[in-house]
Amino acid sequence: MHRFLVKTVTFALAGCLLVLAIALIPGYMVSRFSKFTIKKDNTIVIFGHSHSECAYDDTLIPKLTNLSHSAESYFYTFQKVKKYLSQNPQVTTVLIEFSNNQIAPKMDEWTWGYTYMSNMFPQYASFMGVSDFKLLAQHNSKYFMNCIGIAARSNLIKALSFNYNYTGKTGGYFKIEGTKPLPSINPAGQNIKAPANESTISTTNIQYLRKIIDYCASMHKNVFLIRSPQHPLYEYRSNEAEFSSIRQRYFSDIKFLDFNNFPLKNDEFADFGHLNYKGAIKYSTYINQQINNGMLAPPPTHSLKSFENKQLITINH
């Protein structure tokens, strides 16, 4: 028995060390050599989830790079922001999509739910800090362990193929051709159906949004929260009161550009939450105009609310 224990423990320890090396060395190399570069002329970046991914056609906004990625919670956006800002000093302005569903508890699922974690964690594991790992391990320890294996494999493949380039793999404008049949727009919002079991909020997502903002501030970037257009019947609009309260409580120091009610027709939406390419063209053209008109000029020289209202009135006409 003694011989068995000694041999087994020695073998297991050596195996653990080897596994640790396989997990850490490629991870370090990816962290060290990864490239997150955008065009030299682009000084504005936007981060967010699928709403902004489908809304900002960055071919129509020359100064902007859309780095949004569908189903990305702020936890993963934070890892991305760190890399993009540190490798692209020309960026002066950071737009962060902040819309109603980003305070919803489903963001927790987007952070540590297995399907989401197994997709996002391998991509960003090398750039995470101890507290980030701890958070995932606390909330989903079982799948966190599995995802470490997936991340190690992903990093090993990158290291073996010397492919450290993340550019173009972390998000971008997503063009949607069609449109789902949508019911007629009801401006009064009477038909909005609240999503089931959405009575609480994702504190983690809100905390990580704060982390992103603080990081941007530490890098001396202008930060704006921005809400892309949502269909008037979009289910998450039902949490508007809570959304506004959170925004005022935690992000009152950050300018909020609200294009929630940007006038669009039904056939310009892909579904309630996303614009299709027609909507994206209309909205992006408008945003480009506003950028050129000084919408993002620091510091704001006029009341933001009145600015938005003025622009919306202009486009309505």
């Binding site: 396989i22 294996g149 190690a152 494999r153």
Partner: peptide, 16 residues
């Protein structure tokens, strides 16, 4: 060979 198996298992365990 055994250690290769262990490493491969570790790298592929994500899809339990």
């Amino acid at each position: 060979f055994y250690y290769t198996l262990i490493i491969v298992i570790f790298l592929f365990t994500g899809k339990e």
